[in-house]
Design a protein around this nucleic acid. Structure first.
Lengths: 166, 166
DNA sequence: TATTGTTATACTCTATAACTATA
DNA sequence: TATAGTTATAGAGTATAACAATA
């Protein structure tokens, strides 16, 4: 039996502070999204992703990427957003198995209503106490971590296949 | 109407990377906790908090602090943990309104089983790609942000009172 | 009256598995 | 056969409001 890995005191405090920031910030942002746009965080991410996409449209699978971890979860959210008139769903002309999700004008409107407060929350709660240098370091460090994490983690909502060898 | 606040390109990339790290890391950690200890993240936090407390006991309200945002949510989780035999609940001798939640031996055992993998996940996914200097900087920056956030955010699961002036 | 916690209830969200249809 | 998406279903979690008991 090898001794389990340990976190140094510095790592511990970095980890605690990191999780605390991420949960408090998330809570603030979720509150703002709910109050202003009646959106959950996931719904906001989906709309924002569509807003970034060319033509405001994406295939379900591409839309899911990194936001939702199961197919049915995305179908559920897409239904909710469609019922609210914020997106439409239509079969793809190129591949009839695919569904193209598109942002409607109403969807863009909600996104526009929600953005300023969202940005303000981030500016206040995350960047408020940080200097320009801090922000630069944070960007560098987080980008390094996220690149690695993305490489390690499954990227799509596809169900995991049984491992190849028994 | 004032122009809405903007995020600089650097802030944007810091924010995106930060949220991506926090969601992917959370996902990895949740998977480990579920697989090894059949614990949700919230349940783990509650047990860990009890493990840190002197005597392994805390009042409900103190236990909630920063982990759960509604009283009933904590009651629910405390019930689940009690049914699994990981904690006990008993009225406080000092203040009979209060409930003292205490970690059981079984609770400590689950915590001990879960910790090594938890730490390893954090070491791998968060600190893996970082230098000692990076970690130091991350700790400093995150601590600054979290101190501010904690000062701004409500600390307990107490229901918010109506704002004092209409 | 204020505080502590529980209960009833309703709702949101997520995941698994079975299913349909197209490639 | 593999891929894209939906549906049925069940379970976990959360929040609000009404409630009881103690301070």
């Amino acid at each position: 039996m090898s001794r389990p890995a340990q976190l140094s005191p510095l790592e511990l405090s970095a980890y605690f502070a990191f999780t605390e920031v991420s949960s408090l910030l998330r809570h603030e942002v979720e509150k703002q999204l709910r109050d202003v746009g009646k959106l959950s965080y996931v719904q906001f991410q989906l709309l924002a992703r569509l807003g970034d996409a060319s033509g405001g449209s994406l295939r379900m699978t591409d839309l899911a990427d990194g936001v939702v971890y199961s197919r049915s979860g995305l179908t559920y959210q897409a239904q909710v957003l469609e019922e609210r008139g914020l997106v439409t769903r239509a079969p793809s002309p190129e591949d009839e198995r695919s569904t193209i999700v598109s942002l409607t004008a109403a969807g863009r409107k909600v996104l526009a209503e929600v953005f300023p407060g969202h940005i303000e929350a981030v500016k206040t709660h995350l960047f408020g106490p940080l200097s320009a240098t801090d922000v630069e370091m944070l960007a560098q460090v987080m980008t390094r971590v996220s690149d690695r994490l993305r490489a390690e983690s499954p990227r799509s909502a596809a169900p995991r296949r049984r491992s190849p060898a028994g």
